[in-house]
Design a protein around this nucleic acid. Structure first.
Length: 569
RNA sequence: UGUCCUGUGGUGUAAUUGGCAACACGUCUGACUCUGAAUCAGAAGAGUCCAGGUUCGACCCCUGGCAGGACAACCA
């Protein structure tokens, strides 16, 4: 895995200062902790698709291991059979692999550790550090107190060890109903840290698990399973997001009581992106309620959505690298993500001319029966890819926006009496505008100067701008999906009273239109990336059929003209 | 009226035994241009949450505030 298109990255890596996690690891190595070994892991729960926030975590974990010549594991945190599915397991593996990370033979599941976890639970019981509690979930909550009020002991707290052991084994055998009993760690009901108030270790769930089937009816909770899984895999640095900071004393408590390998938990601030939601729950809601076409909808911040949108793994890794790692809450400007793709796509995307909002242009002094081929570059950033022929004829289509009947001073595209260069072809001059009864422009009539054909010795007369075009009789018709941000507000959760994030959904986040493309896309297949010159980057969608290509707009090009308009408002 | 975490340009991240704040995105100029892209050159923008203290000197150390966030799921 390289960042070939981002040359500054690898070069400056040495000089770049370390983030706080790298500093911790550096110190650990220096002090000889874990014999200098570094082993990280990415532990997704298979209850949804991975999103760009996960990408940050994946790049962090795998990047750390790479940097310190260590190892990384992929581990599914599958301790809740109610919400987890194989569909998610599969998508997660695909996404991590696509991002460019290879876990080799280190693919694990927390569910593989259920037996060990259960043995350790018995160990806690025998040490008098865990007990079976028969309070209802409401009663347990009530006994828990609040952050500012201490809790009360459960009446089952001082059960004898034998009884606890017997009860727990009967829980495992399936003798009880869900919610009837739980196993709790015996710590401190008056701890200022809520997580230390006799947290639940095992609960009864009579449900089919995607991997263990019906073997188990008791399942470990996150707090109990996660740290122990880290320990079993001898993870040295267990990196997670900030909300688990308050769990760390409990994480350490289990490891200490069980006397097992001491993994160390380190927390960092999760990624937030402007105009984007990152909550799996809310993303699921968008999917279920049909606001998007699914988890892979190109407007979704999911890895699979971004992939379908036309993002490259390189661009996402570059982005993850740029945003940094720290502990303070942050909101990254979505413009940085867009900058990341543009930077990569500029270098790799094949150039093609396409007109999305066409208006007919007739070159009146061009012979009616003639057509020719002009010479175009495949990608100016990679001249070695060679050149391509583009058909040209008397009738072409140009972008509506590239013509103005009564242009302001700053507009230097086509207008009556003005000259403009047709990219790769001739300089033309607008002579006449034809309108229909409604006053709409139906045709622009121009003359061309045959001596200005690109490549000719006298072709380089200065004109104010160059526009793209498509020969009307040769145009390939395609479907184009123009995406815009899914939410109108920078913080989608900022909604009016009684409304939620969905009230900020952008009604125009998807516009479907017909595109007319010149040659160059004949052999395109899904995920192929193009730049439609002067418009943006586009990617072939998987919904394409042999007869009809569908293009997704990944991002527009930066557009100084559009920005001028924005500033005037 | 708890515990823990965090506070540096618009945004994000730096400043590594304390030496008057750097980089990226964004913004704005200008050059170049057969993509109003890319590229190149440049500019504006923070005096580091506040108040004390230690020190020749503090973003960095100490004290006290203030602000924001996390924690009361048999979710992870």
């Amino acid at each position: 895995m390289t960042n070939g298109n981002f040359p500054d990255k690898g070069k400056k890596e040495e000089e770049r200062s370390l983030n706080f996690i790298e500093q911790i690891i550096t110190e650990d190595i220096k002090s000889g902790k874990n014999e200098g070994r570094v082993h990280t892991r990415f532990p997704p729960e298979p209850n949804g698709y991975l999103h760009i926030g996960h990408a940050k975590s994946i790049c962090l974990n795998y990047g750390l291991a790479n940097k310190f010549k260590g190892l990384y594991n992929l581990r599914f945190d599958d301790t809740n059979p109610l919400t987890e599915e194989v569909e998610y397991v599969d998508s997660i593996m695909e996404d991590v692999r696509w991002l460019g990370f290879d876990w080799e033979d280190r693919l694990y599941y927390a569910s593989d550790y259920f037996e060990q976890l259960c043995q350790w639970a018995e160990k806690l019981i025998m040490k008098g550090k865990a007990y079976v509690c028969e309070l209802s979930s409401e009663e347990i909550a009530a006994h828990k107190g609040s952050p500012t009020r201490p809790g009360k002991d459960s009446p089952f707290r001082n059960r004898p060890v034998d009884e606890n052991l017997d009860q727990f084994r009967r829980m495992r055998k399936g003798e009880f109903k869900e919610g009837e009993k739980v196993l709790r760690a015996k710590i401190d009901m008056s701890s200022p840290n809520m997580h230390m108030r006799d947290p639940i270790v095992y609960r009864i769930i009579h449900a089919h698990h995607h991997r263990t089937g019906d073997k188990w009816c008791i399942y470990p909770t996150y707090d109990y399973a996660h740290g122990q899984s880290d320990s079993i895999e001898e993870i040295t640095h267990s990196i997670c997001t900030l909300e688990f900071e308050v769990h760390r004393p409990l994480y350490d408590w289990f490891i200490r009581e069980l006397e097992i390998f001491p993994s160390r938990q380190i927390e960092f601030a999760r990624l937030n992106l402007s105009y984007t939601i990152m909550s799996k729950r809310k993303l699921l809601q968008l999917v279920r309620e049909g606001h998007v076409s699914g988890w892979t909808d190109p407007r979704m911040p999911t890895i699979s959505g971004l992939r379908r949108r036309g993002y490259t793994p390189e661009s996402i890794r570059f982005f993850a690298d740029r945003i940094g790692v720290a502990k303070r809450d942050n909101v990254i400007d979505v413009a940085l993500l867009e900058h990341s793709v543009r930077e990569d796509l500029n270098k790799i995307a094949t150039r093609v001319m396409a007109v999305l909002h066409p208006v007919k242009l007739v070159i009146t002094n061009y012979p009616e029966d003639k057509s020719e081929e002009v010479d175009a570059v495949v990608n100016p950033e990679m001249p070695e890819l060679g050149r391509r022929k583009v058909p040209f004829s008397r009738e072409i289509l140009i972008e509506k926006d590239d013509f103005m009947e009564d242009p302001p001073k700053k507009f230097f595209r086509l207008a009556p009496g003005r000259e403009v260069r047709l990219k790769y072809a001739y300089i033309i001059k607008c002579e006449e505008v034809v309108k229909n009864d409604a006053g709409e422009i139906t045709e622009i009539r121009c003359t061309y100067d045959p001596l200005t054909r690109s490549g000719l010795p006298d072709a380089n007369r200065k004109v104010k701008s160059t526009i793209h075009w498509v020969s009307a009789p040769h145009a390939n018709e395609v479907e184009v999906r123009l995406f815009d941000r899914l939410f109108l507000k920078e913080d989608p959760d900022e909604a009016e009273e009684g409304k939620d994030f969905k009230s900020n959904l952008n009604p125009d986040s998807l516009k479907v239109t017909k595109g007319h493309v010149s040659s160059g896309i004949e052999n395109a297949s899904p995920l192929d990336k193009f730049q439609f010159e002067r418009l943006g980057y586009f990617c072939v969608d998987e919904d394409s059929t042999p007869g009809r290509l569908i293009f997704n707009r990944t991002v527009t090009l930066r557009d100084a003209w559009a920005r001028m308009g924005k500033n005037q408002l």
